[in-house]
């Protein structure tokens, strides 16, 4: 189903699945700067949560805190009923394997084939030489990687070198690699930032469709208001280290988001009317 079809779906609101991710009272300070003060929000399976906010409001720090690439100072992060802050090193590694990360930069190994790059995603749940190169991988893994490539529309590029792809195609391969992880939660940090408007839109549409079709909980940061509105279910706005805006994307409009970006800091307006 395309993103647009999802958006135009006239179905009444079905009961929402329990959250995959629940962040409560999260705080993080870097030196004298309090980046996150008291952040509380949630993400549910099959839903896209767009995280918005001006530069420096701590959106990326928030995403990195969820997987403890940055250690939070206070608060709780619960993913699939697991308290992330209490995990030891081994358990943290196992936890991270269930969370897909899409970066601003695709981070592919340019000299290797597209298929091998996708197969690398299986290292979230397997290790050893069979996960290093497509020629060494078992048939089942190769087939799964081809299915992931087909899901992003690049199955015909499997044996092409990754550095021969366009920016948009590379980002799609990175998404296929993320799917290979079989994640339950996906965190995407400005995946459309380095792409031209057309490729950026196509990529956001792809992420939106994948989240709905595969029942993934997706939290995505994007600075493009039109992408935020078109390809999310809920919008969470960060300012001054706290959530100051929560909207249902179906009723949100561009002016509202523009006003959010333009108003001076320290105004808190948690829109509870749209808090489904």
């Amino acid at each position: 189903m395309t993103a647009l079809a999802h958006r135009l779906s006239p179905e009444p609101e079905a009961p929402r699945a329990p959250p995959v991710l629940f962040v409560s009272g999260l705080a993080k300070r870097f030196g004298a700067r309090q980046i996150l003060r008291d952040v509380t929000f949630e993400a549910r399976p099959g839903e896209v949560t767009a995280l918005i906010g001006a530069n420096g409001t701590g959106k990326s720090t928030l995403l990195r805190s969820i997987v403890r690439l940055v250690e939070p100072d206070a608060g709780t992060v619960t993913v699939l009923d697991q308290e992330v802050r209490g995990l030891d090193r081994k358990a943290l590694k196992a936890f991270r394997s269930r969370v897909g990360f899409v970066f601003q930069k695709h981070n592919l190994v340019g000299r290797l084939s597209v298929l091998t790059n996708v197969i690398h995603g299986v290292q979230a749940r397997m290790s050893g030489p069979r996960t290093w190169h497509h020629a060494l991988a078992p048939a089942a893994i190769r087939d799964e990687a081809m299915a992931c490539l087909a899901a992003v529309g690049l199955a015909d590029r499997a044996l092409q070198r990754a550095d021969s792809l366009s920016g948009g195609q590379s980002q799609r391969v990175a998404i296929a690699r993320m799917l290979m992880q079989r994640p339950e939660l996906v965190l995407a940090d400005e995946p459309d930032a380095s792409l031209d408007p057309r490729a950026g839109r196509a990529l956001m549409e792809l992420l939106y469709s994948l989240a709905h079709d595969k029942g993934l909980a997706l939290v995505v940061i994007s600075h493009r208001i039109e992408h935020t509105l078109a390809f999310s279910d809920r919008i969470v706005g960060l300012a001054d280290g706290i959530v100051t805006l929560e909207l249902d994307s179906r009723v949100a409009h561009a002016e509202q988001l523009r006003a959010f970006f333009e108003r001076p800091p320290a105004e808190t307006d948690r829109d509870t009317a749209n808090h489904g």
Binding site: L69, A94, S97, G100, F101, F103, L108, S127, W132, A174
Partner: peptide, 28 residues
């Protein structure tokens, strides 16, 4: 460092990281 970060984020082992992301790039 990008590919290494991507793999270490998903919990890849050090050996996996070396042979998947470091050696191919250092091969030339």
């Amino acid at each position: 460092k990008g590919p290494q970060e991507a793999l270490s984020t998903i919990g890849a082992t050090r050996t996996g990281l070396i042979f998947s992301a470091v050696v191919p790039l250092a091969l030339p």
